[in-house]
Amino acid sequence: MNLIDIIDKLRTKIVKKIAYGILVLLILADFIIPRHEIHFFGDKVPGFWSLFGIISCVLIIVVSKWIGQNWLMRDEDYYDK
């Protein structure tokens, strides 16, 4: 089986479901993972970094796009005009 077939096999619904399963597992396992260094409150809350990850991602996309569309983005020939 060549590389392209493997990639095609990975693009199915089942793989997607497994991926969601892994996400749930990540949060569940965070309840039992030992904490060795606690720097701030976030280190004590199980699943804190999951929440941090998705909120960061959404914030970065939404805020950047907003700044971009209202201010920074220009046509490609902007500097030549």
């Binding site: 030992p34 999951s50 929440l51 990850g53 998705i54 960061s56």
Partner: peptide
């Protein structure tokens, strides 16, 4: 363990956010 888990959580939930948006 904690450090690896912390990183995995951030990264994989970023991936979820990517596909949602």
């Amino acid at each position: 363990a904690y450090h690896t888990w912390e990183t995995l959580q951030i990264l994989l939930f970023t991936q979820l956010g990517f596909f949602l948006l």
